[in-house]
Design a protein around this nucleic acid. Structure first.
Lengths: 210, 210
DNA sequence: TAGATTGTTAATCGATTAACAATC
DNA sequence: TAGATTGTTAATCGATTAACAATC
């Protein structure tokens, strides 16, 4: 993986996936180079901001030319950690868990979902695609026998904190959390929240303002 | 609805739903008052920031006492537009659409999902709970016959922009977008994106940093 | 009244924008 | 070489933190 010295702020990090998506699209359309000005127009940012953002990781552009799309795309892919491969489990096999288990965009980037877990015995033993559904009683055993990098949590709010304690105790260091709850985790565990309710409330606020 | 003069920044707006969740929890636990210091500790913010945030909407606290939990909760509920009621449709009846149709936290806050739409004829005519699934061919007719405030988009990426054009043409002014794509909409339409892929990529980045 | 805590102003910090020399 | 566009420094803008007078 790429090494860089400057400390990168969360503001910039949150923009990286978006850069990556745009560069993938450009690359798919066989665009070979793009200037900060062109990309800025495309993404609704300023050219200055783009140059600042990219420079927190290194000098990818070429004066008088711009940025080579494919090279920059791969650099950001690497920065995002997407040149590695990851093993995931999904806890909660409701509709949300099911939806995510089908995400092709995950598998494409080296995100492998190995199993789903549920405490509903009716679902246990079933498969969703090639992904088996196990009982949550088997969590600890499964995680001991497989290297799991990421846990995706799609369980009800009530069960959230208790389950996350178990997940952290198993040594999993990254959680994609769909539970509408601020989880408490040890310092070395990273959590990224997807809070659908909060997004909807932001929308109703904005609807009232416009 | 509450009126306030100062222009409120997006940074503050994005924190409002979180204030609301915490205040609801406190209220449920019959906590009557809270100081900015206590709330700051609870939420991982600073007391100063909380006082600044709340003051962009008005003076809800009382010197020497703190903030009355229930009153503040209701004020934020009103600011978020959640004292009104909203009619929604969901376009896309896959697992993600299904998951959202079951969200109790929506109905509790006056968000009513009237119908789902899909272009898969196999699903048309079915019900999920009390919500009917119609064919997307019937969208325009349905929206003409019902006042729809919000459209929730859970369709594949390929169909995203074309569908959003139809949605905007029907006069819907708010979109909760799960399509991993930056949608182009008229100026008077508000869009809130829930991008699961971007969240996962942020997580893999953070995992590499830690 | 005295203690506590707000509302608000001022100071600091960080992020964005502007400008331009370096260079392809 | 001349034109274009980067990398980077300096200027501006906005958000967070600190401080304190107002007041319950």
């Amino acid at each position: 993986m790429q090494s860089y010295s400057k400390k990168v702020s969360m503001t910039v990090i949150k923009r990286l996936p978006r850069y990556y998506q745009y560069l993938k699209d450009l690359s798919d359309r066989d665009v070979e180079k793009i200037s900060s000005k062109e990309l800025a127009e495309l993404m609704g940012l300023t050219a200055s901001q783009i140059r600042q953002d990219l420079n927190s990781f290194g000098a990818y552009g070429q004066q008088g030319y711009g940025y080579p799309v494919d090279e920059l795309k791969n650099a950001i892919k690497d920065i995002l950690g997407l040149t590695k491969s990851y093993n995931c489990i999904i806890i909660g096999s409701g509709n949300l868990g099911m939806a995510i288990s089908h995400y092709e965009r995950f598998r494409d980037e080296g995100i492998h979902i190995l199993a789903m877990f549920d405490n509903n015995r009716q679902r246990v033993g079933m498969y969703t695609g090639s992904i088996p559904i196990y009982h949550t009683d088997d969590l600890e055993r499964f995680v001991a026998e497989n290297v799991i990098d990421i846990c995706i949590l799609t369980i009800p709010r009530e069960a959230g904190q208790e389950m996350v304690n178990r997940v952290c105790a198993m040594g999993i260091k990254a959680i994609l959390n769909f539970v509408p709850l601020d989880l408490t985790v040890p310092d070395d565990v990273v959590v990224e929240n997807v809070n659908i309710t909060d997004s909807l409330y932001t929308l109703t606020f904005l609807l009232g303002e416009s």
